[in-house]
Each structure stands twice: as structure tokens, then as C-alpha cells.
Amino acid sequence: MDSAAISPVRLESVRYQIGEALILDDVTLDAAAGQTLALLGRSGSGKTSLLRLINRLQSPSAGEVWVEDRRTLDWDPIRLRRRIGYVIQEVGLFPHWSVERNVGVVPRLEGRPEEAVRRRVRELLELVGLEPDAVAARRPRELSGGQRQRVGVARALAADPPILLLDEPFGALDPITRRDLQQELLRLQGALRKTIVLVTHDVREALLLADRIALLEQGRVVWRGTPAEFEAAPEERVRRFRESAA
């Protein structure tokens, strides 16, 4: 395979089922290097499962998921996950640790020197728009929802992973904070050029942040294209989704 051109994340004819329930059916999809792919769909369309197949929190029932040059099943799952940043709606910060320790967790698991981790954490907090001296020593419960989500993004970026998975990262925030953080992510992505797979049900978020959009319905990819194509697409199902945002 031509290694220069391959996408960092690829799904080939992936089926995923839990017992009898078919969650994903014959999904073929790829995320290009340095670009943002948005998975758009209603709840229950299988988009979160798709994300969890990429960092092997789940394994495909059939088909193959490729990350970089290897199938996920051939990766050591621990190594794989440390190369992939992961941000979820509930953030999932460790409540018993300070912000500093939360952000530094992966570099510390990787055994990086303490001094370097400390510097990296400060750098990241600044990067996501937080004042290190003000927040580093605080516990997650002492932060606002928006601050928590920023810390979640900083934590995902800590080991400088080439791939980021974002699952409704701003879904629990109020509209104003959400818009702030979307702009912030756009700015970050302009500088960092990660390969991002973003799960969202918010059309405007997908249009704003994505380079490519894939529309999921009942476990199948029913449409894909650029945001511009999405806005112009005549297909009934795309139109319906567009209108839901209006």
C-alpha cells in the first residue's frame, strides 16, 4: 500500500453488532491526515460506536479498522490509545486529581521526565485558553463546565497524539460557551493540524469545524462530502437534516 497517501484512520466494510442488534452496517470511511471529519447523525445512528472502534474500546464484528499502517486488532491497544486523544461530552476528568495531574496523565504514564511534563502542562493550559497559575492546582469540581471541557481538550493533546477523537465535545455547554470553544478548536486545528474525527448531531458545528462530513443513519453512511456540498445537496435526507438546524 502507498504509505505516503494512506489516511491515518480508515474503516473498510465495518460491521459492528451487539448480540442481535446491528449498530454499524458495512461502513467504509476514511479521515484524511490533518483534516477534520465530522460524523453527523441522530442519537442511535451508531456514530459513538464508530468512534470507539477507532481506539479499540470496541472491536469490529466484521471488516477492518485501520489506524496508520496497522489494523486496530494488530495494535497493542495501550499503545494505540496513547496515540489517540479522546474527548467526550461528560469530559471524564479524574475528580480526585488536580487539573495539573489530569492534563499530565498520559505523558506521566509514558514515563516522560517530571520537569518536561510540568512545562508541557502549562503550555497546554495556555493553548486552550486557561491561566495555568489560576487553574493548575484546582480540582475539576471547582471549574465551570467550559473550563472543564478545555481541560479535557488539553488532556487529550498532552502526549501530542496525531489523531483526536471528539464525541459531542461541546454538547453539554451553554450556546455561548459552545461557540467560544468551537472557535477555539478551529484556531487550535489551524495551528496543530491533527487528524480529527468529530461526532456531533449539531449541523452548524459540523459545517463550522469539518473539512468532510459523513451522514450516518441507522448504522450506515448515507451521504458524504464537503460542508459546501452538504449545504447544496439536493438529497431528501440531507435536506431534512439541514432544516433541523434552521
Binding site: L57, P77, R81, I88, G92, P95, V106
Partner: peptide
């Protein structure tokens, strides 16, 4: 909290 466990695993904790 399941989301805490989920993030821990997703970050590559054994």
C-alpha cells in the same frame, strides 16, 4: 463514574 473509567481506558491506562 463510567465516563471517568471510559476516559482512563481511552487514554491507554492498563
Amino acid at each position: 463514574d463510567p465516563s471517568v473509567r471510559e476516559s482512563a481506558l481511552a487514554m491507554g491506562m492498563t
